[in-house]
Design a protein around this nucleic acid. Structure first.
Lengths: 252, 252
DNA sequence: TATGTCAATTAACATTGTTAAGCTTTCCGC
DNA sequence: GCGGAAAGCTTAACAATGTTAATTGACATA
């Protein structure tokens, strides 16, 4: 915490931008190399010294740009979350929130399969004291994945699409997210553990999302709850109205 | 892999047992200390040197009893799995497999809450080449947790308690396990990440199990699935007995 | 008594994250 | 243009990690 808050050190000189541009450039270079190294070597195989060697610098040079290893990797992960959020772009246009939920689940699966190492770091590692929310706006559904999920769940809830006992947006969001996360994390962490005969991941995940949504929503036989939200004052009033104040892509 | 397969080195001498008893004793001593250290310091804080200091030995002495860090911790975890399995003892006597399933889920939750560090190591860490199955018999439901789960799912399936599309025992077992694992791992890893407003873990897990089971089983309104097993009509009545109310029998 | 195995130690190696001090090069005010 | 300061980076080092090779002492067996 000593000497790397240089982003606005010089007070007001015209050449500040030039220096700073150069600085940002190498910063990005380090960040990019770190991302690649993380992908190739995995979280365990990542080391500051390897990274330094790869960019032709000395290990200490990195500390001029980043506070420490956690801070660096935290920022790498921030970038991944951004990319993660982008995978949800098209889904946002799906009108039915329940359908949107299912799509989000599958997008999540796809992302986890494509970036297992980043996934590991994003959701399977607890890092305290990384620069949270420096590059992502918390609570903003267009940047914050959890907020996006939250909003979708809230919408469905306001439309009366969930069973009456599921009246807490946070709870339902987390149940849904946790389920999908469970399949994917097991796949990534224990996937080649031959103690268990693992069934194919994709259909498994799909089925799970199906089942979970079926369990969260009322039965379809007779009275399809046709969005009983004519008046918003049904049971969804207590929890569903709360704005996503503290939430976001699980990170740290 | 060099010098620690000494368990049966001496061929046939009467004093073998004496030596070996001593050996097993210190082995257990190390194992116990390792378990405690793992509990107190967590996976990250665990180190061979700390362990050595705690038992009054030199770090290298440990290598005389265990191949390496992974091997040691692997055996620690084996012990925890045994304990884990014991948490299922009473549940085994529940006649209805679906109810049994729900109880297993809640037992799992309880275990995770009580032993978060061991949980971390058991399910959140990928250890390749650890001496698995040295102390646990794979496939035996009374020792192997997954086998216990599997058997339960199979029984329910044979009774026709699942929807027709869920016809793969492995898949259903893993879906169920993964869901519960998802909530618990998120709780453990990200539980104190204030980016997300986490909802209380216990009711969340309970609700999730409820929802998932509801989604896996046929709807209860009209024609109750009549268990296409034909042959073993031993307990086809349980299907009618099941209620959609409270499933989490395993309370604390 | 001699010998070989067992149990444990000392010393060392390689690798890790991180910091303190120093050395150029560049920039800014004068 | 010049002096001083800051930026950018390196060298050297520290402490902690897992792990191995060589060695020493004890002890049971021949």
């Amino acid at each position: 915490m000593s000497r790397n808050e240089k982003t606005l050190s010089r007070k007001s000189s015209p050449s500040e931008t030039r220096r700073d541009r150069e600085r940002q450039k190498t910063r990005q270079k380090i960040l990019k190399a770190a991302t690649q190294l993380l992908l190739k070597q995995g979280v365990e195989g990542f080391s500051m010294r390897k990274l330094a060697k790869q960019i032709g610098y000395t290990p200490t040079a990195i500390y001029f740009y980043f506070p420490d290893k956690e801070g660096l990797l935290g920022e790498v992960v921030d970038g991944r979350f951004k990319e993660f959020r982008q995978a949800f772009e098209k889904i946002g246009r799906e009108p039915d929130p329940i359908r949107r939920l299912a799509s989000m689940g599958m997008a999540f699966v796809k992302f986890a399969l494509e970036h297992p190492d980043h996934y590991r770091f994003m959701f399977l590692t607890s890092l305290r004291s990384i620069p949270k929310g420096r590059f992502l706006e918390k609570g903003n559904p267009s940047q914050d994945c959890y907020a996006f999920l939250w909003t979708t769940v809230q919408e469905a809830m306001q439309q009366g699409q969930f069973r009456s006992e599921f009246d807490d947006v946070d709870q339902v969001s987390q149940i849904f997210f946790a389920a999908v996360h469970g399949v994917m994390s097991l796949h990534i962490v224990k996937g080649d553990d031959d103690w268990v005969q693992w069934s194919p991941i994709r259909p498994k995940a799909e089925r799970m999302i199906q089942a979970l949504i079926r369990g969260l929503t009322p039965e379809r036989g007779g009275s399809r709850a046709k969005s009983a939200n004519g008046s918003k004052s049904n049971r969804a009033s207590t929890a569903a109205n709360r704005k996503p104040s503290k939430l976001g892509a699980a990170r740290e």
